[in-house]
Protein backbone atom coordinates (compact mmCIF):
# COMPACT_ATOMS: atom_id res chain seq x y z
CA UNK A 1 0.00 0.00 0.00
CA UNK A 2 1.34 3.39 -0.94
CA UNK A 3 -0.03 6.70 0.21
CA UNK A 4 -0.08 9.35 -2.50
CA UNK A 5 -0.44 12.83 -1.10
CA UNK A 6 1.32 15.56 0.74
CA UNK A 7 -1.70 16.20 2.94
CA UNK A 8 -0.50 15.01 6.26
CA UNK A 9 0.18 12.57 8.96
CA UNK A 10 -3.45 11.86 9.88
CA UNK A 11 -4.26 10.25 6.53
CA UNK A 12 -1.03 8.28 6.75
CA UNK A 13 -1.93 7.00 10.22
CA UNK A 14 -5.45 6.05 9.10
CA UNK A 15 -4.08 4.18 6.09
CA UNK A 16 -1.66 2.28 8.30
CA UNK A 17 -4.54 1.17 10.56
CA UNK A 18 -6.31 -0.37 7.55
CA UNK A 19 -3.32 -2.05 5.87
CA UNK A 20 -0.73 -4.42 7.11
CA UNK A 21 1.95 -3.24 4.74
CA UNK A 22 1.86 0.47 4.07
CA UNK A 23 4.87 1.83 2.21
CA UNK A 24 5.78 5.48 1.74
CA UNK A 25 5.79 6.94 -1.75
CA UNK A 26 9.10 8.74 -1.09
CA UNK A 27 11.38 9.45 1.87
CA UNK A 28 10.60 13.15 2.13
CA UNK A 29 7.02 14.46 1.74
CA UNK A 30 8.22 17.40 -0.39
CA UNK A 31 9.33 14.89 -3.02
CA UNK A 32 5.86 13.35 -3.12
CA UNK A 33 4.99 15.12 -6.34
CA UNK A 34 1.68 16.57 -7.43
CA UNK A 35 -0.38 14.06 -9.43
CA UNK A 36 -0.69 16.53 -12.31
CA UNK A 37 -4.43 17.15 -11.98
CA UNK A 38 -4.20 19.72 -9.17
CA UNK A 39 -5.13 23.38 -9.39
CA UNK A 40 -8.15 22.58 -11.54
CA UNK A 41 -6.15 20.77 -14.24
CA UNK A 42 -8.55 17.82 -14.07
CA UNK A 43 -11.34 20.15 -15.23
CA UNK A 44 -9.09 21.92 -17.72
CA UNK A 45 -8.60 21.39 -21.46
CA UNK A 46 -4.85 20.64 -21.41
CA UNK A 47 -5.05 16.84 -21.26
CA UNK A 48 -1.68 16.15 -22.90
CA UNK A 49 0.16 18.38 -20.44
CA UNK A 50 -1.79 16.88 -17.52
CA UNK A 51 -0.78 13.37 -18.55
CA UNK A 52 2.86 14.32 -19.21
CA UNK A 53 2.96 15.99 -15.79
CA UNK A 54 1.43 12.86 -14.30
CA UNK A 55 4.24 10.69 -15.70
CA UNK A 56 6.31 11.80 -12.67
CA UNK A 57 3.59 10.56 -10.32
CA UNK A 58 3.10 7.36 -12.33
CA UNK A 59 6.82 6.61 -12.00
CA UNK A 60 6.69 7.23 -8.25
CA UNK A 61 3.70 4.93 -7.88
CA UNK A 62 5.34 2.19 -9.95
CA UNK A 63 8.52 2.38 -7.88
CA UNK A 64 6.61 1.53 -4.68
CA UNK A 65 5.60 -1.86 -6.07
CA UNK A 66 2.32 -1.45 -4.15
CA UNK A 67 -0.97 -3.08 -5.19
CA UNK A 68 -3.08 -0.14 -4.08
CA UNK A 69 -2.57 3.60 -3.92
CA UNK A 70 -4.56 5.76 -1.52
CA UNK A 71 -5.43 9.38 -2.21
CA UNK A 72 -6.95 11.93 0.14
CA UNK A 73 -8.15 14.16 -2.69
CA UNK A 74 -10.78 13.85 -5.42
CA UNK A 75 -8.48 15.22 -8.14
CA UNK A 76 -5.57 12.92 -7.25
CA UNK A 77 -7.88 9.92 -7.13
CA UNK A 78 -9.46 10.70 -10.50
CA UNK A 79 -6.13 11.46 -12.16
CA UNK A 80 -4.52 8.23 -10.89
CA UNK A 81 -7.54 5.94 -11.25
CA UNK A 82 -9.04 7.22 -14.49
CA UNK A 83 -6.02 8.52 -16.36
CA UNK A 84 -2.52 7.53 -15.16
CA UNK A 85 -3.38 3.87 -14.54
CA UNK A 86 -4.41 3.54 -18.18
CA UNK A 87 -1.79 5.83 -19.75
CA UNK A 88 1.16 4.27 -17.95
CA UNK A 89 -0.14 0.74 -17.45
CA UNK A 90 0.13 0.94 -13.66
CA UNK A 91 -2.01 -2.12 -12.89
CA UNK A 92 -2.85 -0.64 -9.50
CA UNK A 93 -6.04 -0.15 -7.52
CA UNK A 94 -6.83 3.40 -6.36
CA UNK A 95 -8.95 4.32 -3.36
CA UNK A 96 -9.93 7.41 -1.44
CA UNK A 97 -8.63 7.20 2.10
CA UNK A 98 -12.25 7.26 3.37
CA UNK A 99 -13.12 4.51 0.89
CA UNK A 100 -10.35 2.39 2.38
CA UNK A 101 -11.75 3.00 5.87
CA UNK A 102 -15.28 2.20 4.67
CA UNK A 103 -14.09 -1.05 3.08
CA UNK A 104 -12.23 -2.00 6.25
CA UNK A 105 -15.24 -1.60 8.54
CA UNK A 106 -16.99 -4.42 10.29
CA UNK A 107 -20.30 -2.74 11.06
CA UNK A 108 -22.17 -3.73 14.18
CA UNK A 109 -25.86 -3.65 13.19
CA UNK A 110 -27.98 -1.06 14.92
CA UNK A 111 -30.51 -2.26 17.49
CA UNK A 112 -34.22 -2.39 16.63
CA UNK A 113 -34.82 0.64 18.86
CA UNK A 114 -32.12 2.65 17.07
CA UNK A 115 -33.49 1.69 13.66
CA UNK A 116 -37.06 2.59 14.61
CA UNK A 117 -35.94 5.94 16.00
CA UNK A 118 -33.89 6.74 12.86
CA UNK A 119 -36.74 5.81 10.52
CA UNK A 120 -39.13 8.03 12.44
CA UNK A 121 -36.76 10.97 12.02
CA UNK A 122 -36.21 10.08 8.37
CA UNK A 123 -39.96 9.95 7.67
CA UNK A 124 -40.46 13.34 9.31
CA UNK A 125 -37.68 14.74 7.15
CA UNK A 126 -39.22 13.29 3.99
CA UNK A 127 -42.61 14.81 4.84
CA UNK A 128 -40.98 18.19 5.50
CA UNK A 129 -39.04 18.04 2.19
CA UNK A 130 -41.84 16.54 0.07
CA UNK A 131 -39.88 13.35 -0.65
CA UNK A 132 -42.08 10.33 -1.29
CA UNK A 133 -40.22 7.10 -0.51
CA UNK A 134 -42.74 5.03 -2.50
CA UNK A 135 -41.95 6.99 -5.64
CA UNK A 136 -38.22 6.35 -5.44
Amino acid sequence: MAFGDHCGEMSRWITAQCCENMVEMVDNPVDNLCCGAGGGAWAGPYAKERIDFGKWKADQIKATGAEMVVAACHNCRDQIKKSLTKEFDLGIETKYVWELVSDSLVIKPWTKTEITKARKKRNAQFVRDGVDLEEL
Binding site: V30, L33, C34, G36, A37, G38, G39, G40, A41, G44, Y46, E49, R50, F53
Partner: peptide, 15 residues
Protein backbone atom coordinates in the same frame (compact mmCIF):
# COMPACT_ATOMS: atom_id res chain seq x y z
CA UNK B 1 -1.10 28.61 -20.91
CA UNK B 2 1.72 28.35 -18.36
CA UNK B 3 -0.32 29.50 -15.32
CA UNK B 4 -2.94 26.83 -16.17
CA UNK B 5 -0.61 23.92 -16.90
CA UNK B 6 1.09 24.74 -13.58
CA UNK B 7 -1.00 22.87 -10.98
CA UNK B 8 -0.19 25.38 -8.23
CA UNK B 9 1.48 22.62 -6.22
CA UNK B 10 3.90 25.15 -4.74
CA UNK B 11 7.05 23.06 -4.92
CA UNK B 12 8.91 25.89 -6.73
CA UNK B 13 8.09 28.34 -3.96
CA UNK B 14 8.95 25.82 -1.26
CA UNK B 15 12.38 25.21 -2.78
Amino acid sequence: KWPWVCTLCGRCQFK
